[in-house]
């Protein structure tokens, strides 16, 4: 199996999504434009409840658009496809399949890999994420961090053109989270592909990304795109470089503006952020 994934170019043009609820229409996205260049990692940040997960669902093709267009390598997308794989917020490993069976699931059902080829690819990837000795365990027998790694492996074996990660490390403790981020970074830098990584943490976004996209409060639009031109391969140390600190200050400022709006609109979770920011300055 080829180790390098060929990334696709994903373009979202003028994305609009409105839900028609009993309590009235709720506009979640309004005219959102976003381009993911091939083989780059884009981190996306926005206030809680701004519609980041909805954006992921739209890009994956799970839900229809109200308006706008999504193109992969110039072709409009139709429904979910293995070209655009999602790594879910909460683990979506099939609980009734073992780690091995979960990772093998995609190529096996599509009939792309069989017999020894399948075993080799799966085992290589499991070794990559350090789960080869857990191949016959069920997800419930794995720790939270292991589950996320297994899920990364399950997505990566399909060599998707675009990988959509919806806060994949949410709910892990801080140390596991740091380890997972390093792990993921190594995997990305080795295997490439186009990645969109939704996160709520500025540091996570800056450490990982080639560009940091900050979206507005609902209805979400792109507020600002910050190019992150830090050298790869990256490690924790870049966090103390002046370039990093400048970027972080700018990102924090932008996030704060959006959190303020969200706070004024009545979001309790933004209240924490606003309070902490005020205490800092």
């Amino acid at each position: 199996m080829e180790n390098i994934t060929i990334g696709g170019r994903l373009e979202a043009k003028n994305l609009t999504k409105t839900y028609h609820l009993d309590s009235g229409d709720r506009e979640v996205l309004r005219g959102l434009n976003l381009t993911l260049e091939p083989d780059t990692l884009t981190a996306l940040m926005g206030p809680t409840g701004c519609g980041k997960s909805v954006l992921i669902n739209l890009l994956a093709g799970y839900e229809p658009l109200t308006n706008g267009e999504i193109c992969l390598d110039g072709q409009p997308i139709h429904g979910p496809d293995k070209d655009r794989l999602v790594v879910f917020q909460e683990t979506a490993l099939f609980p009734w399949l073992t780690t091995y069976e979960n990772v093998a699931y995609g190529p096996k059902i599509r009939g792309e890999l069989k017999g020894a080829d399948l075993t080799n690819s799966v085992m290589e990837l499991l070794r990559h994420v350090g789960l080869d000795s857990f191949r016959d365990k069920y997800p419930a027998q794995l720790s939270g961090g292991m589950q996320r790694r297994a899920e990364l492996a399950r997505a990566m074996i399909n060599q998707p053109k675009v990988t959509l990660l919806d806060e994949p490390f949410r709910g892990l403790d801080a140390m596991t989270r740091d380890l997972m981020r390093d792990h993921y970074l190594t995997l990305f830098e080795k295997r490439r592909g186009t990645h969109l990584f939704v996160t709520a943490e500025i540091d996570e976004g800056l450490l990982l990304a080639d560009q940091l996209v900050i979206v507005t409060n609902r209805p979400a639009r792109v507020k600002k795109i910050l190019p992150v031109n830090l050298p790869r391969p990256r490690s924790e140390e870049i966090r103390s470089t002046p370039e990093y600190l400048t970027l972080k200050a700018e990102a924090l400022e932008l996030s704060h503006e959006e959190a303020m709006k969200s706070f004024k609109a009545g979001s309790l979770s933004s209240a924490d952020f606003v309070g902490a920011y005020a205490a800092l300055n």
Partner: peptide, 18 residues
Amino acid sequence: IDEAYFRAAKCLGASESL
């Protein structure tokens, strides 16, 4: 059954019968 399992299966290319 959590909707996420259906979504994961769909984007991995599972047919209806699968």
